[in-house]
């Protein structure tokens, strides 16, 4: 009880930062997922290759090291980012790479006949995509997107390493002050992350239900 009163204010201050990094990072990742996912389906080989290179690079190197680069190394090249910007950018670029694979494979799994019917009806490429392909690919993207969102949430704890005061960062500094409460501290930390993750999956599940409307039977 006493532990809670001592620890919670600090953790909740961190919670705000965690949520901020999570939401902004997720928005950037989602935007990149679509942009890069579509570029990977481009007619032009050079575009596809560049998009694939981005994906391979950001999937193939560690998020922590990407964050270090963005925050500690880039200033040597004259690019200075705030800790928040570096954190959001790192998470967005990293999970955007994974997300673009989700977008690409979902779009490719819409049956060819749907594209052909859209062409036969003379729908413009944009209308084809927006009104025929995307509404069918979107429900396929949601479950893997849900997974990635939770991964991203857990990834936010790494921004504590670039001086951002998120929940993990706060916990680490509380730990030095209240060493005897280490167990309740880390228990609370666990529970807080778990609650955000649960809320996230609930939201994604709702989106999934909504996306399925009319596709019964």
């Amino acid at each position: 009880m006493e532990a809670g009163i001592l620890l919670l204010p600090g953790l909740l201050r961190g919670l705000r930062v965690t949520l901020e990094v999570f939401v902004l990072g997720a928005m950037l990742a989602l935007g990149l997922s679509f942009a890069v996912g579509l570029l990977r389906l481009s007619r032009f080989p050079i575009v596809r290759t560049l998009a694939a290179a981005y994906v391979e690079f950001f999937r193939g190197t560690s998020l922590l090291i990407q964050l270090f680069w963005l925050y500690y190394a880039l200033p040597f090249f004259g690019v200075e980012l705030s800790a928040l910007a570096a954190g959001v950018l790192g998470l967005g670029l990293n999970y955007g790479a994974y997300g673009s694979e989700v977008v690409r494979s979902a779009i490719r799994s819409v049956p060819k006949g749907q594209w052909e019917a859209a062409i036969a009806l003379n729908l413009s490429p944009l209308v084809r995509f927006r009104r025929v392909i995307l509404p069918q690919a979107w429900p396929l993207m949601l479950p893997p997107f849900g997974n990635l969102l939770i991964e991203l949430l857990k990834g936010t704890s790494l921004v504590s390493m670039i001086t951002l005061g998120d929940m993990t960062f706060q916990a680490m500094s509380l730990r030095t002050t209240y060493a005897r409460y280490e167990v309740p501290l880390f228990l609370l930390l666990l529970v807080l992350y778990f609650l955000i993750a649960t809320a996230t999956s609930a939201i994604v599940r709702r989106l999934e239900r909504r996306a399925r409307v009319g596709r019964s039977a």
């Binding site: 749907q114 052909e116 019917a117 036969a120 009319g214 596709r215």
Partner: peptide, 11 residues
């Protein structure tokens, strides 16, 4: 088309 190719998400 042989396989109709109706848009499943539209009435």
């Amino acid at each position: 088309f042989q396989h109709f190719n109706l848009f499943p998400h539209m009435t």
